[in-house]
Computed example of a mutant assay.
Amino acid sequence: MPQPVRILHVLGGLDAGGAESFAMNLYRAMDRRYVQFDFIKHTPRACLFEPEIARLGGRVFVCPRYTGKNHFAYLRWWKDFFASHPEYKVIHSHVRSTAALYLPVAKRYGLVTIAHSHSTSNGSGAAAMVKDLMQLPIRREAEYLFACSDEAGAWLYGKGALQRPNYRRISNGIDLARFAFDGETRARMRAELGIPDGALVLGHIGRFTRPKNHVWLVELFAAWNKHHPESRLLLVGDGELREDVCRQCETLGLTDKVLMPGAHTDTENYYQAMDVFVFPSLWEGLPVSVVEAQANGLPCLISEVITPEVRVTDLVQALPTDALAHWLEKLADCRCREQGALTPAQYKGLQPFDMTWVAQDLQTFYREQYEKAGR
């Protein structure tokens, strides 16, 4: 049997972020007899998904983080990498800030280049402006322009790109069965987390970064908990703002009410412990966690800035983050809802996010591009 084609994915890290979760969900669903993934990360730190990648047969390479001062050394690293790894014919980039630097190098070495947009903003401030400028050439340098939503595609590549033949919207697919509601797992997880019987659990899964808006989420929970002191807030994830959120919880007297178990690869178990999924992001591409929460049957309260493409069932309500009272009203409605199996209509709405179909489509695409590059 011939060896599988190896596709090179480029990310900032390999922890439980949106782009990383998409890449890993896709990797798990691939038929690895035919397509294998390898990864380049921009951090020397050991990351959450690396043990699983090794078990699945993938390799991880460490690229130096771009600082500006190491511009030529950064380019040289990529030239040396491609020169010493001729086995790669396709590169799939999930990084925006420096993709315009390494994609041209990849093209010179004969690789098919794919850019993938997972967001709709770089934030604000000087650093964001630099990133905005650095990512502009991507629309010219990448042969294929992927995006998790049309909003994410228009933001990174321009609205005109949505009509180009090399543009593709790729759903943030998941294993629907993996996230289905399970009463036994729910009971076990709530016991392990020390959640009181009958307590309403507000849940969130995501990295502790500014776009996820954890500070506002804790303020929402504080307002809710005043009248429902038995309730709990479950924040699954890690990131640079975690300690800030811990201090905020301490100041508000919520330390024993806010559960922060860290980053986990078995997130399906943590959805089971929740009663409502709360996701007040400041900006997003298309958050896969909201899709996962719907697959679990959870009512989802999300900020209205998040693309409507994620609202595939009647479980989702989009609200403005400047109307705290409105969120509290909707939380009260969620108390009356029993969690359980999805309705046929809800399951049908989730079908476009079935990773089985997404993986089959991309597996064919990868193999076609590999053959094309090898001619």
Score class of each variant (00 low, 15 high):
residue 342 L to T: 13
residue 254 L to Y: 10
residue 214 H to M: 00
residue 220 L to G: 05
residue 343 T to P: 07
residue 349 G to N: 00
residue 249 C to S: 09
residue 298 L to V: 02
residue 348 K to P: 07
residue 262 G to N: 04
residue 309 E to D: 04
residue 251 T to R: 14
residue 286 L to F: 01
residue 220 L to A: 06
residue 230 E to R: 10
residue 351 Q to W: 13
residue 292 E to R: 03
residue 298 L to I: 06
residue 334 C to D: 05
residue 316 V to L: 01
residue 219 E to G: 11
residue 338 E to P: 07
residue 338 E to F: 09
residue 348 K to W: 13
residue 247 R to A: 10
residue 343 T to C: 12
residue 237 G to C: 06
residue 242 R to L: 08
residue 239 G to T: 10
residue 343 T to A: 09
residue 254 L to H: 09
residue 354 D to F: 12
residue 325 A to Y: 13
residue 322 D to P: 11
residue 336 C to G: 13
residue 319 L to Y: 10
residue 302 I to S: 00
residue 353 F to R: 07
residue 315 L to I: 07
residue 287 P to R: 06
residue 230 E to Q: 13
residue 270 Y to H: 03
residue 290 V to N: 01
residue 347 Y to T: 13
residue 222 A to T: 10
residue 326 H to D: 15
residue 244 D to E: 10
residue 331 L to S: 03
residue 345 A to Q: 15
residue 239 G to W: 03
residue 243 E to S: 09
residue 214 H to R: 08
residue 228 H to L: 00
residue 261 P to N: 01
residue 313 T to F: 03
residue 288 V to S: 02
residue 349 G to S: 07
residue 302 I to A: 08
residue 341 A to I: 13
residue 308 P to C: 00
residue 300 C to F: 05
residue 348 K to T: 15
residue 255 T to Q: 11
residue 322 D to I: 11
residue 329 E to N: 14
residue 311 R to M: 05
residue 257 K to Y: 12
residue 319 L to G: 02
residue 311 R to D: 07
residue 219 E to T: 14
residue 289 S to M: 06
residue 286 L to Q: 06
residue 302 I to E: 00
residue 315 L to T: 02
residue 348 K to E: 12
residue 231 S to L: 08
residue 300 C to L: 05
residue 266 D to A: 06
residue 281 S to R: 01
residue 308 P to A: 02
residue 331 L to F: 10
residue 345 A to H: 15
residue 249 C to V: 15
residue 285 G to Q: 06
residue 273 A to R: 01
residue 311 R to C: 09
residue 259 L to S: 00
residue 221 F to E: 02
residue 316 V to D: 00
residue 323 A to F: 12
residue 274 M to V: 05
residue 330 K to H: 15
residue 333 D to H: 11
residue 312 V to R: 05
residue 212 K to N: 08
residue 210 R to A: 04
residue 261 P to V: 07
residue 290 V to P: 02
residue 242 R to I: 05
residue 214 H to I: 02
residue 221 F to R: 02
residue 351 Q to I: 13
residue 270 Y to K: 08
residue 251 T to A: 14
residue 272 Q to T: 08
residue 305 V to C: 03
residue 303 S to Y: 05
residue 329 E to S: 14
residue 277 F to E: 04
residue 271 Y to W: 04
residue 228 H to W: 09
residue 337 R to H: 14
residue 231 S to V: 07
residue 294 Q to K: 01
residue 268 E to T: 03
residue 340 G to Y: 14
residue 350 L to Y: 07
residue 328 L to K: 10
residue 308 P to W: 06
residue 217 L to G: 00
residue 341 A to P: 15
residue 338 E to L: 13
residue 332 A to I: 14
residue 339 Q to M: 15
residue 236 V to R: 01
residue 276 V to I: 06
residue 211 P to M: 05
residue 264 H to Y: 10
residue 274 M to F: 05
residue 338 E to C: 12
residue 323 A to W: 09
residue 349 G to E: 00
residue 264 H to C: 01
residue 301 L to S: 02
residue 324 L to M: 15
residue 309 E to H: 09
residue 245 V to P: 05
residue 229 P to Q: 06
residue 258 V to L: 01
residue 225 N to L: 08
residue 279 F to K: 00
residue 237 G to V: 00
residue 248 Q to P: 08
